[in-house]
Design a protein around this nucleic acid. Structure first.
Length: 925
RNA sequence: AGGCGCGUAGCUCAGUUGGUUAGAGCGCUGCCUUGACAUGGCAGAGGUCACCAGUUCGAAUCUGGUCGUGCCUACCA
C-alpha cells in the first residue's frame, strides 16, 4: 500500500465497478426503504448544496442497505421549465434568433436535443460524490410515463372541480412573458421614492381644511393612468363627507369616484389612497368590493398600451413614470417627493420587476388539498426534523392561496385542454380523447391550450409518478410511502408541501414519513453562495483540487455582471492563495456529515475538510500497520485475548451503539465525530500503541499475539463497516485487504451486513484496567513534558499507596507500561517508607513518582505542584460551599449529594498528598 | 410588522430531560525524524457560556426583558 492515502487512485474505478455490478439497485427481500432524490434541474451543475444533500441521503441509504433493507434511491432529473427554456433561448440568441423565429415545434425539439447532448453534466458530477443511486431507473419529469401521470392528475383534478381557469391578477414577468407563482417572486428592499399627487375635487367639493383637492401618495406614479377610484377610511372625519363624490384624474379625461373602504389606514400618509385594480393586489380586492373597473394599462412586455392616454402609449414603464411625474409637475399637481425604501418584487429567474397583470390562467383550488396535508403532519404521519419546521409548514398551509399553474412558455407539459370556437373548455389527454369524452361532433372546431404547466406541478407528483403511477406497480406497494425526505428549508413550500398534498390526494398515502431539513451551505463568512457574488464553490474542486488561476477563471467567466470580475478575483486570491488541494470525495463527505448539526446553516470551512482528509489518511495508515503486523497470522491459529483486546472490543461496542442512535436521530455530526474519535483517539492512539510492545516482545506467547492480531483485524473490519456509509471509497479499498487477510468471502463492503451489538462485548473491567493504564502513562508523560525530560531518556518509576487493584494492574500491564512510557525500572514503596525527592502524578490514591535525582528541575516541579494544588483548592472550596448549604443537602437528590461528598473526600486526600509533596520539595531548596 | 433561529475558546461548532473541573476540530506554544502515518506523536495555554433580572439548593441549559445577528412570511399606498 502507498505511504499515504491517494483518493484519486481509487474513486472513479470503484464507482464504475459498483455501478456495473448493479449494487445500487434494490435487492434482497428486506423491508422497503426509500429516499426520494430532490430531482436536480437537467440544466444544473452540482453545487455545494447538492453535494451536502447527496452526502446525507447516501449515508442513510448505504446504512439501511447494510442493515438489510431493500433500498431504493432512484435517480431522476427535472425538466426545469423556465431555466431550461432560458438556456436554449440564449443559445438561439447567439445565432441572432428568437424562439418565435423557429416556432414552437422546432424549439422544443432543440431543447430535447440539448438535453440529449448536455443534460448529463449533473449526473456525472453526482457520480463523483459516490452516491449509490439506482441509475437503472433514471427518470425525467418529461419522459412518457411521467407525462401520462401529469395528464392524468390534471384531468382528474379538473373533473373533480379542483382545477379551474379564470381571469385573475397574477404575478407577471414581463421579461419572460409568463405568469409566475407567488413563491417565485422575491421581494428585494430597494431605495426609491414616494410621490405625492394632488387630485382636484370635482363639483366644488372641499376638504374639511378647505382644500380643493385630495393628495394621494404612490411609489408607482405611472399606474395612476389606470386609477379608477380614490379611497378613504369610511370613518375618517376629514374625508367622510366626500365619499360618493368624485375627483378629476389628472393627465386623463376621466373622473373617478371617492369611495370609503376600511382597507385604508387613516394614520398613514394623507389617508387617501389611489386605487388601481388592474395593477395592485390590494387595490384589486378593493375594486371588487366596490365594483370598480380594472383598467389594464400595460402590454405583456410592460409597455403602456392603448387604454392609456395617447401621450403615454408605447412608453416603457420606467419612461412612463418619468413623463407622468414631469407632466404633473407642470400642472402644479406634484405636491412633493420623498425618499422611500420599498420592497420591489422581482422574478427569481429573470430578475425583472414583476407586474401584477390581469390574465387568463389555470389555478388549483388548493384548500381541499391542503386540509388532509395539514392533518397528516398534525397527527404525526409525517414528521419534520427538526420539529420547528412544522410551524413554518403550518403557517403557510393555513393561509394558502390558490395555485397558479399555467405558464406562457413552450418547454414543459402542455396543458391538456381544448377550446371550441365559443371558448368552452374540454379537458382530456389529447384531442381525440376530448372528442370522445365530451361527445363532440367532428364538425366542432377544437383549439389546444398553448400554455404549459409550471415545473413544480410535475415535481409534486415525484413520489408516485416515479414508481409507475397511474399503473398499479409492485414498486408503489414496496416504496410508497418512502421513509426520509432530505432537503433544504428553501423548498418546503415549493416542493415538500405540494408533494404531500398531491400524493395524499391521488394515492391516499403520505409520500414520506420523515422530512429531514438540513441547513443551507454558506461560505466561510456566512454568506449565501452565488455566481453573482463570485463566492460559489464547486464541490468537485474539493475532490480533485484546482489551481488558483483556474479558480479565478471559473469564478469570473460568464458573469451576469462582468464589472464584478476584478473584485471577485481579488477576494478569491485572498481566500485561496494556493488554490484548493485535492481532498477526495470521502473527506468532503465526512466534512458534510460533521457539519450537519440540527437545522443550522453550515459555513463551509476549509480547515474542516483538511482535517478530515487527514483523518482518511490516518485510517489508511492504521490499515497499513494492521496488515503489516498480521502477515503471519492465520484464521485457524489458537489464540488468547488480552485485556487490551477486551478493552477495544468494548469501546467498539459503545461506538456502534452511539452511531446507530445518531443515525436514527439524524445526528450526522455525532455519527461522524464518534467514528473520528474512536478511530483516531482509541484505536490508533491507544490500541495500536498497546499492541506494539506485545507483538514485538519475544517473551509474549504466540497465542496472545494471535489474539491481538485477530482483534486488530476484526476491530478494524468492524470500524470500516461502521464508517462505510459516510466514507465509501476508502472503506471499500481497505476492507478488501482486511477481508482477504481474514479470509472472508470477498465481494464488497457495500453489501456486507452492518455490525451488530451482540458481536461486541461490553467489558467494564477491561475498560477500567486500560483507563488506569492510560492515567499512569499520561501522568508520566506530563511529568516528562513539564520537566523537559527527553522522550528517548528512560526513567525509573516508584509506586506508592496503591491498593490491590493497582498492584495487580501494574503487574498485568508492566510490559506495556515500560514501553509506552519508556520506564526502565519499577519499584513499589511500602506506605510507611519515605520516598526520595520526586515528581508526582496521582492516579486516584496511587502515587506515581519519578525520582528527581539528576532528571528534574525542582523549581519547575514545585510550581507545577502548586498549580495542581490551587486547582484542587478551588474545587474543594466549591464543593464545601455546596455541601455546607443546608438547602442543597435537604433538597437535592440523595445520589447527587452523595457524589458531591465522595468528590470532596477525594479532593481532600489529593490535596493532602500534594501538600506533603510540596513540603518535601521545599526542603530541597 | 409578524414568525422562526442564532450569540459558548482566536476561528468553525457540540453541549441530550437543569447536577463532574463546560467539550471537539482547526489555529496557537513547547518538545519529538521511536520500526502505520510530519496529512504524524506527546504535552500545554486559552472561555465572566452576549447582557440584565427572575425561578431553583443548583442555570450554558428554564422564564421575562435588552442588545447584536441571520432567515422566512406579509407588506401601508
Amino acid at each position: 500500500m502507498d505511504s499515504s492515502f491517494d483518493p484519486e487512485a481509487i474513486e472513479q474505478s470503484l464507482y464504475r465497478d459498483w455501478e456495473e455490478k448493479n449494487y445500487f439497485a434494490p435487492a434482497g427481500n428486506g423491508e422497503g426503504y426509500c429516499v426520494l432524490i430532490p430531482p436536480p434541474n437537467v440544466t444544473g451543475t452540482l453545487h455545494m448544496g447538492h453535494a451536502f444533500n447527496q452526502t446525507l441521503m447516501d449515508t442513510l441509504i448505504r446504512y439501511q442497505r447494510m442493515k438489510g433493507r431493500q433500498t431504493l434511491w432512484q435517480m431522476g432529473t427535472d425538466h426545469a421549465g423556465i431555466a431550461t427554456q432560458m438556456l436554449v433561448e440564449r443559445q438561439l440568441e447567439e445565432k441572432g434568433q428568437t424562439r418565435q423565429d423557429i416556432g414552437r415545434e422546432a424549439f422544443t425539439k432543440k431543447v430535447w436535443e440539448w438535453r440529449e447532448n448536455s443534460g448529463g453534466t449533473i449526473a456525472r458530477q453526482i457520480r463523483r460524490m459516490g452516491s449509490s443511486l439506482d441509475w437503472s431507473r433514471d427518470r425525467f419529469t418529461m419522459d412518457d410515463g411521467y407525462a401520462l401521470a401529469v395528464q392524468t392528475v390534471f384531468e382528474r383534478l379538473y373533473d373533480e372541480g379542483l382545477i379551474y381557469r379564470g381571469q385573475r391578477l397574477v404575478n407577471w414577468d414581463p421579461k419572460l412573458g409568463t405568469a409566475i407563482s407567488d413563491l417565485e417572486v422575491e421581494n428585494i428592499e430597494e431605495q426609491g421614492h414616494m410621490w405625492h399627487f394632488r387630485y382636484p375635487l370635482k363639483d366644488g367639493l372641499l376638504t374639511q381644511d378647505g382644500e380643493d383637492h385630495l393628495t394621494v401618495a404612490t411609489t408607482r406614479p405611472e399606474t395612476m393612468l389606470g386609477d379608477t377610484a380614490v379611497a378613504v377610511h369610511p370613518e375618517d372625519e376629514r374625508y367622510q363627507h366626500l365619499i360618493g363624490g368624485r375627483v378629476e384624474l389628472p393627465l386623463t379625461d376621466r373622473s373617478i369616484p371617492i369611495i370609503g373602504d376600511a382597507y385604508v389606514d387613516s394614520e398613514f400618509g394623507t389617508g387617501c389612497v389611489k386605487i388601481t385594480p388592474a395593477h395592485d393586489f390590494n387595490d384589486n380586492e378593493v375594486g371588487q368590493r366596490h365594483n370598480l373597473a380594472a383598467i389594464n394599462i400595460f402590454t405583456e412586455s410592460a409597455f403602456i398600451n392603448d387604454a392609456a392616454p395617447e401621450a403615454y402609449q408605447g412608453l416603457a414603464r420606467e419612461d412612463a413614470r418619468k413623463k407622468v411625474v414631469e407632466d404633473l409637475e407642470v400642472l402644479g399637481l406634484l405636491a412633493r417627493i420623498e425618499e422611500h425604501t420599498l420592497s420591489v418584487p422581482r422574478g427569481d429567474r429573470s430578475g425583472a420587476i414583476i407586474e401584477p397583470l390581469l390574465t387568463d390562467q389555470w389555478f388549483v383550488k388548493i384548500k381541499p388539498l391542503a386540509e388532509p396535508a395539514i392533518e397528516a403532519v398534525k397527527n404525526g404521519d409525517i414528521q419534520f426534523v427538526p420539529k420547528q419546521y412544522e410551524n413554518t409548514y403550518f403557517s403557510w398551509m393555513y393561509d394558502i392561496q390558490d395555485w397558479c399553474i399555467s405558464r406562457q412558455q413552450w418547454w414543459g407539459h402542455q396543458i391538456p385542454a381544448f377550446y371550441d370556437d365559443s371558448g368552452a373548455i374540454f379537458v382530456a389527454a389529447d384531442e381525440a380523447a376530448a372528442r370522445e369524452k365530451y361527445g363532440l361532433d367532428p364538425s366542432v372546431n377544437l383549439r389546444e391550450d398553448e400554455d404549459v404547466l409550471e415545473t413544480w406541478f410535475s415535481s409534486a407528483l415525484w413520489p408516485f409518478a416515479t414508481l409507475g403511477w397511474p399503473e398499479e406497480t409492485p414498486e408503489l406497494d414496496t416504496f410508497l410511502p418512502s421513509n426520509t425526505l432530505v432537503t433544504g428549508h428553501d423548498i418546503i413550500f415549493f416542493w415538500v408541501a405540494r408533494m404531500i398534498m398531491m400524493t395524499l390526494h391521488f394515492t391516499g398515502k403520505v409520500p414520506f414519513h420523515t422530512v429531514y431539513i438540513h441547513g443551507l451551505v454558506r461560505d466561510g463568512e456566512g454568506h449565501k453562495m452565488s455566481k453573482t457574488k463570485g463566492n460559489g464553490l464547486d464541490p468537485l474542486d474539493f475532490i480533485d483540487g484546482i489551481s488558483l488561476d483556474q479558480l479565478v477563471e471559473k469564478r469570473t467567466s460568464n458573469l451576469t455582471q462582468p464589472q464584478m470580475a476584478p473584485r471577485i478575483e481579488k477576494v478569491t486570491r485572498k481566500d485561496f492563495p494556493d488554490g484548493i488541494p485535492a481532498y477526495g470525495t470521502d473527506a468532503l463527505r465526512f466534512t458534510f456529515c460533521a457539519l450537519a448539526t440540527t437545522g443550522r446553516d453550515v459555513r463551509f470551512d476549509l480547515n474542516r475538510i483538511e482535517g478530515n482528509r487527514n483523518f482518511c489518511n490516518k485510517l489508511w495508515n492504521a490499515t497499513k500497520f494492521v496488515l503489516s503486523n498480521t502477515e503471519e497470522w492465520d484464521v485457524g491459529s489458537p489464540y488468547q485475548v488480552t485485556v487490551a483486546d477486551q478493552w477495544i472490543t468494548s469501546k467498539a461496542h459503545t461506538l456502534l451503539k452511539d452511531v446507530e442512535y445518531a443515525l436514527e436521530t439524524y445526528r450526522f455530526d455525532i455519527f461522524a465525530s464518534k467514528i473520528y474519535d474512536f478511530a483516531w483517539h482509541e484505536y490508533c492512539d491507544w490500541y495500536l500503541e498497546l499492541t506494539k510492545p506485545l507483538l514485538w516482545d519475544e517473551d509474549i506467547p504466540e497465542e496472545q499475539k494471535n489474539g491481538i492480531r485477530r482483534t486488530l483485524l476484526s476491530t478494524l473490519e468492524i470500524l470500516l463497516r461502521i464508517a462505510h456509509p459516510v466514507v465509501p471509497y476508502i472503506t471499500e479499498t481497505m476492507w478488501a485487504e482486511v477481508a482477504a487477510r481474514m479470509k472472508l468471502p470477498v465481494s464488497t463492503i457495500m453489501l456486507q451486513a452492518y455490525p451488530e451489538l451482540v458481536d461486541l462485548k461490553f467489558d467494564a473491567q477491561a475498560e477500567a484496567q486500560i483507563e488506569w493504564l492510560k492515567s499512569v502513562v499520561t501522568g508520566l508523560r506530563t511529568i516528562r513534558g513539564e520537566a523537559n525530560i527527553k522522550p528517548s531518556q528512560p526513567i525509573p518509576v516508584i509506586f506508592q499507596n496503591g491498593d490491590e487493584n493497582d498492584r495487580k494492574r501494574a503487574l498485568d500491564c508492566e510490559a506495556i507500561l515500560r514501553r509506552l512510557a519508556k520506564v526502565d525500572k519499577i519499584t513499589w514503596l511500602a506506605e510507611a517508607d519515605a520516598p526520595p525527592a520526586n515528581a508526582l502524578a496521582l492516579v486516584d490514591q496511587l502515587k506515581v513518582m519519578v525520582p528527581l535525582a539528576g532528571l528534574i528541575d525542582v523549581d519547575a516541579e514545585r510550581s507545577r505542584i502548586e498549580k495542581e494544588m490551587e486547582k484542587a483548592q478551588q474545587e474543594l472550596k466549591r464543593l464545601q460551599g455546596k455541601l455546607s448549604n443546608e438547602k442543597f443537602v435537604a433538597n437535592a437528590p440523595e445520589e447527587v449529594v452523595q457524589s458531591e461528598r465522595d468528590k470532596e473526600a477525594a479532593v481532600q486526600l489529593r490535596l493532602g498528598t500534594l501538600t506533603g509533596q510540596l513540603a518535601q520539595l521545599q526542603e530541597l531548596t
